[in-house]
């Protein structure tokens, strides 16, 4: 997959580091930055399709597919310097290689915060806003008048009447009208377990949280699609703020 990375500020770091590097030549100036994503439901590792989970509403639910964009990464270090990385990545729980996301080369520093957009901002979430690849093509949001991309496709089944009869749900999020509906995530980075020039962030997404708190997502109410339902989009936007957690750095 192509990822275009434009690293601003990198030159400042590079100059600073090359001066430093001239005196201490055993110190590496840059390292690779990875985000390794894991998906859980509460504490359990996600088992797509097979396992039934329980929503607060009492409905059982299964997760079949989950794909979503992460973009616009910003790293902040202990000196308050920030590094923005203009990148777009599509995670897909059914394609393991997408879950190990190589962001790119970054200068070595003590990074203390990581923020990113869960989804795509207004500039990218327009027709033709992303590179023309089949993966992006498959995420298109073709609704006339508000074209762009799904920022998340989350599909599965739920127990509709608490009787074991499974019905389908499709949680498709994207732009409606003027709302781009993306979510900004900002997380503190814990101290690295190992000191090394690479930065390997192990991150977890809790799917259960997306369906709960502050709002309980109602499978029954939003039964047959939410693509033009800003109310449902809003609920997911508010729920989506705290679904990511950093498990460890350089484990």
């Amino acid at each position: 997959m192509h990822t275009h990375i434009y690293i601003t500020l990198i030159t400042i770091f590079a100059i600073a580091l090359s001066l430093f590097g001239a005196t201490a030549c055993n110190v590496k100036e840059s390292g690779e930055f990875y985000i390794n994503m894991y998906h859980v439901v509460q504490k359990e590792n996600l088992q797509p399709e097979d396992k039934i989970y329980h929503a607060a509403s009492g409905h059982g639910y299964k997760v079949y597919r989950l794909k979503y964009y992460l973009s616009q990464i910003i790293l902040e270090d202990d000196k308050g310097e920030s590094l923005s990385i203009d990148v777009v990545h599509l995670f897909d729980i059914l394609t393991p290689k997408t879950l190990k996301f190589r962001v790119g080369k970054i200068p070595v520093s003590n990074y203390t915060r990581l923020s990113f957009i869960f989804g795509l901002d207004k500039e990218k979430n327009v027709e033709g806003g992303l590179e023309n690849t089949l993966q992006n093509n498959n995420m298109e949001w073709p609704i006339i008048g508000e074209k762009g991309y799904h920022y998340m496709k989350f599909e599965g089944k739920y127990d509709s009447l608490h009787t074991g009869i499974m019905k389908n749900y499709h949680i498709h999020t994207g732009p409606t009208g003027n709302n781009a509906n993306f979510i900004t995530i900002d997380l503190p980075l814990p101290k690295p377990i190992k000191e090394q020039s690479d930065l390997i962030v192990k991150m977890e997404m809790d799917i259960h949280k997306l369906l709960h708190g502050p709002h309980d997502y109602d499978f029954t109410e939003f039964d047959h699609g939410i693509m033009d339902n800003q109310n449902a989009q809003e609920i997911l936007k508010e729920n989506g703020g705290d679904i990511f957690r950093i498990v460890s750095v350089n484990e």
């Binding site: 089949l134 498959n138 298109e140 073709p142 006339i144 496709k153 499709h170 699609g225 693509m227 033009d228």
Partner: peptide
């Protein structure tokens, strides 16, 4: 409009330029 919206909802499987995901 039927094909590419949730009304007939064909596009979630047949939606890209190839008309096949």
């Amino acid at each position: 409009n039927l094909f590419f919206t949730e009304k007939a909802d064909c596009f979630h499987c047949h939606g890209n330029i190839l008309f096949s995901d």
